[in-house]
């Protein structure tokens, strides 16, 4: 991920071999809390402390900040305490998703109850 996104590793250089299987791209932490599991990469353009707190609650392993955004030092410290890997890429969120999708990464499965609701 680091090389294809030409990303800077802001936190978690020693945890880059942590496996992740799915990705979720959102600036809406409400949505992230609603349907993401722990093996997911969060791609976001939002850089407030709640991004890290949301990740903490869900036991996420990796956050990618898109569009060249870098969170403040206190947010990074908190991410470090959580054992997260934090990457920053200059790619837009859309391009970040496209690049990771091309690599074989897929989105979070739609929860069963949402599929039922649509029928």
């Amino acid at each position: 991920m680091v090389s294809v996104l030409n990303a800077n590793v802001l936190i978690g250089e020693d945890k880059l071999d942590t496996p992740v299987y799915t990705a979720c791209c959102s600036d809406l932490m409400s949505d992230v809390l609603a349907f993401v599991d722990e093996k997911t990469v969060l791609i976001t353009g939002l850089t407030n402390p709640h991004v890290v707190r949301t990740s903490e609650m869900l036991d996420l392993k990796c956050i990618v900040f898109a569009r060249g955004k870098i969170p403040t030092e206190d947010i990074l410290e908190s991410a470090d305490e959580q054992g997260l890997v934090v990457l920053a890429t200059k790619q837009t969120a859309f391009s970040t998703c496209g690049i990771l999708y091309e690599m074989g990464m897929r989105g979070v499965p739609v929860p069963e109850q949402w599929e039922k609701k649509d029928k």
Binding site: D27, L28, S30, D31, A34, N48, P111, Q113
Partner: peptide, 14 residues
């Protein structure tokens, strides 16, 4: 801050 999407109460219930 990324909240207020109207998912809170249903998500708690889920």
């Amino acid at each position: 801050l990324g909240f207020g999407a109207g998912m809170g109460l249903p998500n708690m219930k889920r």
